[in-house]
Each structure stands twice: as C-alpha cells, then as structure tokens.
Computed example of a mutant assay.
Amino acid sequence: MGKLYLLPNVLGETEFAAVLPLKVTDTLKKLRVFATENPKNTRRLLKKIDKGIDVDQLVFLDLNEHSTSREIESCLAWLEKEDVGIISEAGCPGIADPGAELVALAHAHSYTVIPLVGPSSILLALMASGCSGQHFSFNGYLPVKTPERVKALKAYERQSAQEKRTQVFIETPYRNLKLFQEMLAVLSPSTMLCIACDLTTEKEYIKTLSVQAWQGKLPDINKRPAIFILYAAHRP
C-alpha cells in the first residue's frame, strides 16, 4: 500500500532551492506516479530539478477542475501498489488548487497522506499584509459580473468590520486592475487593502494601504498573479 504525498511547487520564476525544502525535491525524484493538473508542466518541472530523470518512464494522472469523480477514484488503483504524488501547478496542493477530493478519498480508504512544506501565496500574503491572522477567510474568486461583485465586496467588508475577520481572495490576472478600481470605488476609505503579486520571485510586490491612501495610485498588477486582502476592523 502506497502513501499519498502532497508536493508544493514554486509560485513563479525562482530558484527551487530558495523556496522548496530539500525533502520536496528529493521526494519528487523518487516518485514514479504523479497526479497533476498539467502533465506537460510537471514533466518540465522534473527535468529542471534533475535532468537525469527519464520522464518517459513516469506515470502522469490528470487531476484538475474538470476531472470526474470516476477519474479521481481511478488514482486509488495506483496508490494500492505504490506511492503517488499530487504536484501543484503553483503553491500547495488543495489550497486554491486541485487535489482535495483525491486526498479525501485517500483518507476514506486508509491511505497515509503526507503534506510537504512549500510556498502558499495565500499564507505568504496574509503574513505580509499586517492584517489579522487570528481570524481570516479565503474566499476564492469574486463574482465576474459587476453588480454581484460589488455586492460581495460590501458583504465581505461588513463581515470583516463586524467579526474582525481578514478577507482574502484572488482574481484572474487580466481582471486585476478592474477589480482594484472597483474596490476603491465601493469600499470604505478606512478599510485596509493589501495587494501581493508574484510572491517569492524577483518581481515580488506587497503593499498595504487604506482605501483612501490607495486613491490616485495605480499598482503594476495587470496580468500578474495576485492576492487581494481587505480588513475593515476598527484600528485605534
């Protein structure tokens, strides 16, 4: 009976040794079966880690948002025979990333699940934001249509103020600027807003200001992977 390893990946163009512990890269080299969102990218990652890896001898199982329950269950047949690794496209498996359903199945069938340490853009942004890390929510993507998105922003802001809860969410990179401008238009001037882009890379950008202080500023976030954080609790 194999074990299920949860393997983090880098968040962008950066040196593996700078963000991934040796145990992660060592485990990647030893595994033969990978459940992955993008097999092509996983092959490329493995060759970057060790050019000696023969990727043609490895097994790559599709695990993405379009995978059916039957396809995910088929991964268990491999776990019955040997260790399997879930490799994130960026960051950590199961955190704003496919993998949770296979992990749940592994637990249901008594397979050992081993999470390995690596970068999570959500946690790194929260750490660097200056907003409360005691009580927070990751809300994924906001609605695409403007009326629903404005309604969601106001609801998150209201909940943040009432519960002292930090609200974390993401956006499709090409819509970053539109979201930023909408936030400045609808959120309270005193609400704190953090934007964190390209974390752990040379282009890393992290800035927290009040909505009022952001007015007139246009951060360089267009088409860049970003985390947005708002915190509306009263500050002395």
Rank of each mutant, 00 (worst) to 15 (best):
C75D: 10
G99F: 07
E157W: 04
H234E: 13
G91L: 05
L79Y: 14
A90Q: 03
K81T: 14
L61H: 10
N139G: 04
P115D: 03
E157A: 12
L142W: 01
V150G: 01
A18I: 00
A232E: 02
Y156Q: 13
P189Q: 09
R175T: 01
V59K: 13
T68W: 01
F136V: 08
A100Q: 10
D97I: 03
G99N: 08
I170K: 06
E65A: 11
T27M: 12
V113T: 06
A155D: 09
A77V: 14
D198N: 13
P219W: 11
G130Q: 02
E171D: 11
S88V: 08
A104R: 12
N9S: 15
V84F: 14
G85T: 13
S137F: 10
T14A: 09
P143L: 05
P173L: 01
F136L: 11
T25C: 05
I86L: 11
L46S: 07
T191P: 02
A185E: 14
I95D: 00
A106S: 07
A226C: 15
D56V: 01
L193P: 04
E82I: 05
S210C: 10
R70P: 00
A128M: 11
M127C: 03
K23W: 01
F228I: 12
R44D: 13
N9K: 08
Y231P: 06
